[in-house]
């Protein structure tokens, strides 16, 4: 009886030690830089940067495979924040990836919608609600304004509307223009 308890106890203890050791030995470190970059990106999951979403783009920046000026929704402020984080020089938004626009939301003209569900499949953040052959609508709070749903719509019933500033989501504009520091000799 005692042998059995001891034997199993020791066996379990040894296995526990082995697992504990290998948990330290084979620990997988996440990439903290990629997390910080991802926190700066606007999370629109829109894709003009050439990646499938904000997370893959931030991993590519962290790995040095992508530049910091490929995110149109983030705009100049986003690029500045990335440049500060990574200690790189600021560079203007790469025009190949699009232009920075005011934040918009998608609005579905519900009279025209035929319920084809194509926009639901295109939406990266599941902000469109609806079912086959039923009217769809956009949950404006969830919409990131990525415009990915506009293209697939067969009846062109989705329009992008700028978000009107009101008291609930107004904030101080970010300082896009920075004062240039001139060398003292030029003054």
């Amino acid at each position: 009886m005692l042998t059995a308890i001891l034997a199993l106890g020791i066996l379990a203890g040894l296995f526990g030690l082995l697992l504990g050791y290998s948990a330290i030995r084979f620990r997988v470190e996440g990439d903290p830089i990629a997390d910080q970059i991802n926190a700066i990106l606007p999370q629109t999951q829109c894709g003009p940067c050439g990646f499938a979403g904000c997370r893959p783009y931030s991993e590519a920046i962290a790995a040095g495979e992508a530049d910091i000026n490929q995110c149109p929704p983030g705009g100049e402020a986003g690029i500045r924040a990335l440049a500060d984080l990574l200690g790189r020089d600021f560079k203007p938004l790469n025009a190949e990836h699009g232009e920075h626009k005011e934040k918009t939301v998608a609005i579905i003209d519900e009279q025209v919608c035929i319920g084809c569900t194509l926009c639901i499949q295109a939406c990266p953040v599941d902000a469109i609600l609806g079912a086959a052959k039923h009217m769809h609508t956009v949950i404006e709070k969830e919409c990131t304004g990525c415009e990915l749903c506009v293209e697939p719509c067969p009846v062109d019933c989705i329009h992008m509307q700028p978000v009107a500033h009101d008291i609930t989501h107004w904030k101080w504009p970010s300082p896009d223009e920075r004062l240039e520091i001139m060398p003292a000799t030029q003054i």
Binding site: A4, L8, L11, F15, L19, A23, F26
Partner: peptide, 24 residues
């Protein structure tokens, strides 16, 4: 040790450890 009657539980323990180790 003459404790063959604990075979099932000992084997389950071993398998669980091997799986966990493999995963890591």
């Amino acid at each position: 040790l003459g404790i063959e009657y604990l075979r099932t539980i000992a084997f389950i323990l071993t398998i669980a450890v091997v799986v966990q180790f493999t995963e890591m």
